[in-house]
């Protein structure tokens, strides 16, 4: 209960800071609208038929819209933890938080919550704009499984994100893993085009990325109205990623905190 209240305090803090930049909300809303428009017109040029391998019967615009939405979640999960740690180190507020009895894990999680909430709003906006103005068909029955898939995806990528925060905390610089995962996800993860359309030696790498399973599951749930049983292989794969990546990230973070306290570099940047 107390942890929940603390996390809410972080949300309130970041909300107040966000609204103090008055044009920020407006600019972000324009960004979403422009993004959807760009991909709408790209899809009109591409005009890939729904029978294209990997599209599984979905039209290209709906396909890429889901890709963009999940890419936002991935980006938040990968960068928000390390970004917040770095930001609070540089603004000098990390030390003030670390001298309180709130555990450092709660501080890092709390600091990232606003980013996730904002991403959720953005994703919802993507889907709504697609549904209302561009005829994207969203199947309501797929909403709950989609939420489960998104949650697992966020948890899996949060493992990598927390690992990145550990790098920032100890080495004072970003880690190469985040960059590699982000780039590889965009290249072979099925965000903008199906991996099936790529050279087999390259598309094979998509199997080691959580976003591949997340996107396939999400599209099958929301766009193709597949039964839950069809989603299970992707959900199992995501669970496996969560089981490996999240403890790895948390463990690395604990080690980094201990090492930084030993070196006295916890609040240095």
């Amino acid at each position: 209960m107390r942890t929940a209240q603390t996390l809410l305090a972080f949300l309130k803090r970041d909300f107040l800071i966000e609204v103090s930049y008055r044009t920020s909300f407006l600019m972000q809303a324009f960004g979403i609208l422009f993004g959807v428009l760009v991909w709408y017109f790209v899809s009109r040029v591409v005009q890939a038929p729904p029978t294209t391998p990997g599209l599984e019967g979905a039209d290209y615009f709906s396909y890429v819209l889901m890709g963009l939405a999940l890419l936002h979640y991935q980006s938040s999960a990968l960068t928000s933890f390390s970004g917040k740690v770095r930001g609070e180190q540089m603004t000098g507020t990390l030390e003030a938080m670390l001298v309180t009895p709130t555990p450092i894990g709660t501080i890092v999680l709390g600091s990232s919550l606003w980013e996730f909430l904002l991403t959720s709003v953005k994703v919802l906006a993507y889907v709504l704009i697609g549904r209302l103005f561009f005829g994207v068909v969203i199947h309501p029955a797929g909403l709950l499984p989609a939420l489960l898939i998104i949650s697992l995806t966020v948890l899996a990528f949060s493992g990598v994100g927390i690992l990145s925060a550990a790098f920032v905390l100890y080495l004072k610089r970003g880690d190469p893993i985040t960059y590699l995962v982000s780039s590889a996800s965009a290249l072979v993860g099925g965000v903008f085009y199906p991996p099936e359309d790529m050279w087999p030696w390259l598309s094979g790498w998509s199997r080691v990325l959580p976003i591949t399973y997340a996107l396939r599951g999400l599209r099958r749930a929301l766009l193709l109205d597949r039964p839950f049983a069809d989603l299970l292989p992707d959900i199992r794969a995501l669970l496996l990623f969560v089981a490996i990546l999240l403890p790895l990230g948390v463990l690395a973070f604990r080690v980094a905190v201990r090492k930084a306290r030993q070196e006295g570099s916890l609040v240095q940047y």
Partner: peptide
């Protein structure tokens, strides 16, 4: 208590800053 002015959120009010840190103190 440090003399580091940067340890607060500059865009929040004094009261908002204290409210936030009060939550961190439980």
């Amino acid at each position: 208590v440090t003399s580091d002015e940067r340890s607060f959120y500059w865009r929040l009010t004094g009261r908002e800053n204290l409210d936030f840190f009060a939550r961190l103190y439980g």
